[in-house]
């Protein structure tokens, strides 16, 4: 076994390559940033109309609601909130995954490092500028203390891990399902609705709200935004997200072993 340090360097390099790989598609990222901004503005007007009709809905005031809108828009690129799939799904379909399985490295960590590199690039291009434009146009809720920034950062990072954990499982499902387009579409609907991308989950009453807020998708957008707004306890939020991230990554590890067994032993 190579020393831990070398292994860390390997995955760090993969993350760096993931970043650089995406930075070669600058035009696509800029187009994404533009779309995120325009849709952010449209969503903001819808939410403003809703909150002016029902002030204090879901525990937010109008400015909180607009802040929610732009912070959730910021999650779209890095967390692929409309169900954007990992490159791995394509590699499973084409059989290129055999090459990945031959490498002396973990398929899951490899994909994670690559995806985090991608997420970091899109964070810079597709998250920060639209949020700044939103702040300039509408004025967003400022963080209550300076500590809110690292707290939000930690919660956002756990959101990224949870999003990867989920999308990795969806990508690997291609090992068992001949045509994974249905699963991808379902994943897109689940991610966009239950994360709070469509409407903040806090406004849903009763059991629907409770269920929606307990899902892993809530850990991706709703919870980090609440941490920023200060409407949710920090440790409760991080524990909730950490539990989902750990559970999905553990399931991913099991699925990787299953996929390996399927390829290596059953030859599928």
């Amino acid at each position: 076994m190579p020393p831990r340090e070398t292994v860390f360097q390997l995955y760090l390099r993969i993350a760096l390559y993931g970043f650089r790989k995406h930075s070669t598609y600058r035009a696509a990222a800029l187009a994404g940033a533009f779309t995120n901004t325009v849709f952010g503005i449209l969503r903001a007007y819808v939410l403003i109309a809703l909150w002016e009709a029902r002030p204090g809905l879901g525990g937010y005031d109008v400015v909180d609601a607009v802040t929610f809108c732009f912070l959730s828009q910021a999650a779209i690129g890095p967390m692929q909130m409309f169900g954007g799939s990992l490159d791995l799904a394509r590699r499973v379909r084409s059989g290129d995954v055999a090459i990945d399985l031959m490498r002396p490295a973990s398929l899951q960590l490899w994909s994670l490092a690559d995806d985090l590199g991608r997420a970091f690039y899109l964070l810079l291009v597709r998250s920060v500028p639209p949020t700044l434009i939103g702040a300039a146009l509408f004025g967003l809720t400022a963080p209550q203390t300076v500590w809110r920034w690292p707290e939000f950062g930690a919660s956002f990072a756990l959101g990224l891990l949870t999003s990867f954990g989920w999308r990795y499982l969806i990508a690997l499902s291609a090992c068992w399902i001949d045509d994974d387009r249905g699963v991808q579409a379902l994943s897109g609907v689940l991610m966009s609705f239950f994360s709070g991308m469509i409407l903040p989950l806090t406004i849903f009453p009763g059991w629907l709200g409770a269920v929606a807020q307990a899902t892993p998708w809530a850990a991706m957008v709703q919870v980090p935004v609440d941490v920023y707004l200060g409407t949710r306890g920090l440790w409760e939020a991080l524990a909730f997200q950490g539990a989902w991230a750990a559970a999905l990554l553990a399931l991913g590890a099991l699925a990787t072993a299953g996929a390996r067994r399927k390829v290596v032993i059953q030859g599928g």
Partner: peptide
């Protein structure tokens, strides 16, 4: 690595 210079793939092999 499809999108990166050839040299980068070699550098990764070194770490791998």
């Amino acid at each position: 690595w499809w999108d990166l210079p050839l040299r980068d793939s070699f550098e990764l092999v070194r770490h791998l």
